[in-house]
């Protein structure tokens, strides 16, 4: 069967099963309206938080899911916090980031011990740093988007992943977080990849015992700025 035939046959079979007639235009309007409105369905109460409450909730959720969280007031305190974190965990004082505007402007030289590499993730990266565009506090979920700023491979290849997020970018619900991305990307639609990350990698495939670091990072550390 040729490809275009398969398409036609499947769609016809679907229409036949649904009892659709050609003269029916109501369905098309219903669909167009729903796609355009993208109205939220029921949003749980727990997700209706913002500001300090959202920061507190996301910290609690992330820690409950095996991540660690720390706070700094200003971006220029990030290098020191990272240097400290790496020392505490006996990790090498080097890391990789993308071209993210916020991460690029950080005065890394303040913590002279740190070496910064840039570019996409490599198979033997020990530590990488990304910035999350937004987050949904309801389940401690960070929204990371692909591109040169924060390459997707940085989220999955390292042993330790550090994610920086500004407190003001944290929202309560997934719906609120999508609206941030919709505003940022407008007509382009979604970025190629949006990773919703809620903790370090894990598996329970052997006797349902949870083991961290299945394929992705063994450790996830989140730094909330502001």
């Amino acid at each position: 069967m040729s490809r275009s035939n398969a398409r036609k046959n499947i769609l016809n079979a679907v229409r036949h099963s649904l009892g659709v007639t050609d003269t029916d235009t109501v369905r098309e309007k219903t669909v167009a309206k729903r796609l355009k409105a993208h109205k939220p369905n029921l949003v749980p109460e727990i997700a209706k938080v913002s500001g300090k409450k959202a920061v507190a909730l996301i910290s609690e959720k992330l820690e409950g899911q095996g991540a660690t969280v720390s706070h700094v007031d200003k971006p220029d305190q990030i290098p020191e916090r990272i240097a400290e974190y790496l020392r505490e965990n006996n990790l090498p004082a080097e890391f990789r980031t993308g071209d993210d505007s916020m991460l690029s402007q950080i005065p890394w030289s303040k913590a002279s011990s740190l070496t910064r590499h840039t570019g996409r993730g490599q198979g033997d990266d020990a530590v990488t740093i990304s910035r999350a565009d937004t987050a949904a506090a309801e389940t401690g979920t960070l929204f990371l988007t692909s591109g040169a700023d924060n390459p997707t491979t940085l989220n999955f290849l390292p042993d330790t992943h550090i994610v920086v997020i500004r407190a003001k970018d944290i929202r309560g619900s997934y719906e609120d977080a999508w609206n941030i991305l919709r505003k940022a990307y407008k007509k382009q639609g979604l970025p190629r990849t949006v990773n919703l990350v809620s903790g370090p990698s894990r598996t329970a495939d052997i006797e349902q015992i949870i083991v961290m670091g299945a394929h992705g990072p063994r450790r996830l550390h989140v730094i909330i700025v502001g």
Binding site: Q65, G98, G119, R120, G121, T139, G140, T141, S146, G147, A148, P151, T152, T153, G189, L190, P191, R192, T193, V194, N195, L196, V197, S198, G199, P200, S201, R202, G216
Partner: peptide, 18 residues
């Protein structure tokens, strides 16, 4: 929520390093 939920829209875009 699962640890990773990933939304994928099309192939590599201009300027994407991966």
């Amino acid at each position: 929520f699962s640890t990773y939920t990933t939304l994928t829209t099309g192939p590599k875009r201009e300027g994407d390093p991966d």
